[in-house]
Simulated scan of single mutants.
Amino acid sequence: MKRTAVLIDGGFFFQRVMFFGRKYFSKELLLSAEQLSQIIKKLVKLHIEDERSASRELYRIYYYDCPPPSNQVRFPIIPDGYKSAGHMDFKAHAPYRLRRDLHDQLRSSRKTALRLGELAKNGEWQLNSHSLKALLRGEKIWAELTNEDFHYKVEQKTVDTKLGMDITTLALEKLTDVIVLVAGDSDFVPAAKLARMKGIDFVLDPMWANTTGSLSEHVDGLRSFDIVRLIRDVTGQPVTTRPDWWDARIKNAAQLYENAEIAIAGDLEPDPGL
Rank of each mutant, 00 (worst) to 15 (best):
K2D: 10
D9K: 06
F12S: 02
V17F: 02
V17Q: 08
M18A: 14
F19Q: 04
F20L: 09
F25D: 03
F25V: 09
S26D: 15
K27T: 15
K27R: 13
L29A: 08
L29V: 12
L31V: 09
E34S: 13
Q35F: 02
L36Q: 05
S37G: 13
Q38K: 15
Q38L: 06
K41T: 13
L43S: 11
V44D: 01
H47S: 09
I48D: 02
E49A: 13
R52E: 14
S55V: 14
R56T: 05
L58C: 08
R60C: 09
R60L: 09
I61K: 01
P67D: 06
N71C: 10
N71V: 12
G81A: 12
S84F: 14
S84R: 07
S84D: 11
M88H: 06
M88T: 06
M88R: 15
K91D: 15
A92N: 04
A92V: 11
H93C: 10
H93N: 05
R97Q: 15
R99K: 15
R100D: 04
L102E: 03
D104G: 13
S108H: 10
K111G: 01
L114E: 01
L116V: 07
L116C: 06
L119Y: 08
G123N: 01
W125D: 05
L127T: 04
N128S: 11
H130A: 07
S131N: 08
K133I: 05
A134E: 02
R137Q: 12
I141N: 03
A143V: 12
Y152Q: 00
K153Y: 10
K157F: 10
D160I: 13
K162L: 15
G164H: 01
G164C: 09
G164T: 07
M165S: 00
D166A: 07
T168P: 03
T168R: 12
A171R: 03
K174F: 02
K174A: 14
D177M: 07
D177K: 04
V178L: 02
V178Q: 04
I179P: 03
V180T: 12
A183V: 04
A183H: 08
D187S: 11
D187M: 08
F188M: 11
A192N: 00
A192S: 03
K193S: 11
R196S: 06
G199H: 04
F202H: 08
F202K: 00
W208S: 08
N210M: 12
G213A: 05
S214P: 05
L215A: 01
S216R: 06
S216M: 10
H218Y: 15
V219Q: 00
D220T: 00
G221D: 03
R229D: 05
R229I: 07
L230W: 02
D233Q: 10
P238H: 07
V239Q: 01
R242H: 07
I250G: 04
I250F: 02
K251T: 15
N252Q: 13
A253L: 09
Y257F: 13
Y257K: 01
Y257W: 07
N259A: 15
A263D: 02
A263I: 14
G266W: 02
L268V: 10
L268N: 05
E269F: 14
P270A: 09
P272I: 05
P272S: 00
G273F: 14
L274C: 11
L274T: 12
